[in-house]
Amino acid sequence: MRVSKHPSRVGTRVRFAVSGPEDHGVGLPGVLWLPAILALAFLALPLVALITRVPWATLPTLLAAPEIGTALGLSLLSASLATLLSLIFGIPLAWFLARSGRWPPAVRRLLRAVVTVPLVLPPVVGGVALLLLLGRRGLIGQYLNAWFGLQLPFSTAAVVIAETFVAMPFLVLAVEGALRGADRRFEQAAATLGASRWYIFRRITLPLIAPGVTAGAVLCFARALGEFGATITFAGNFPGTTQTMPLAAYLALETNPDAAYVISLVLLAVAITVLFSLRERWIRGVSA
């Protein structure tokens, strides 16, 4: 054994020994530390900046201001309606996806793609697409207009539709996961007890997947609440009718920055609440 001539180098050997005893020797290479820390800071610092710039002293008055209050009310209403619509239509769709085991794989892939597209599609594109479907001269919109005099774009209904389009996939995928994880033998047990399919669905299937439905609804609500691109494209930006909180924050940034900060803080608070309420439910719902 040779005595080291460079005692100072002893330190370099242990400098990055942050790995646990079980992965000794294959821990994080030193060269990756800096980018990891930078990435973390990049994600966290904007939120810190936002919180430091919130005018805490005038917060209550700003929150009570009519333009913010209106936007908040409209946001909560439209996001709630979008979540409700997603539940009514999304749970049956999730059921078809989860129980389509006997369908040809190509059909299942296509179904899944259709459901997943709104998740990856730029929301503005979603808004344009909705306009082309439901607009005054749209694929369906022209008939709605001609037969019923119905004009969806630039109305509160359009906000709800845009939010539903963007947010429903979250609910569908969460519920589908819960349905796949649910023990189907309970449904068979119910069938031997004389229950109809509808009765089984209501009294057995739905309660069994309740955690997954809750998780999906919370995610769906959060996504709907933050919706911007599809809403402004399809519904426009009319205070009181279609101006939701994200739109109001964007506009207020030029005229009344303090109001923009407050709205952003409210949305951040909602997001954090969602995150915490999901921590348990998400895991349980998917594995239930």
Binding site: D183, Q188, A189, L193, L208
Partner: peptide, 20 residues
């Protein structure tokens, strides 16, 4: 005939009592 229309009673392995 579907299970509901067979006049049968089944006690399953693990019983499968509805947990809720």
């Amino acid at each position: 005939r579907p299970p509901a229309d067979r006049e049968i009673g089944v006690v399953f392995q693990d019983y499968l009592l509805f947990p809720h």
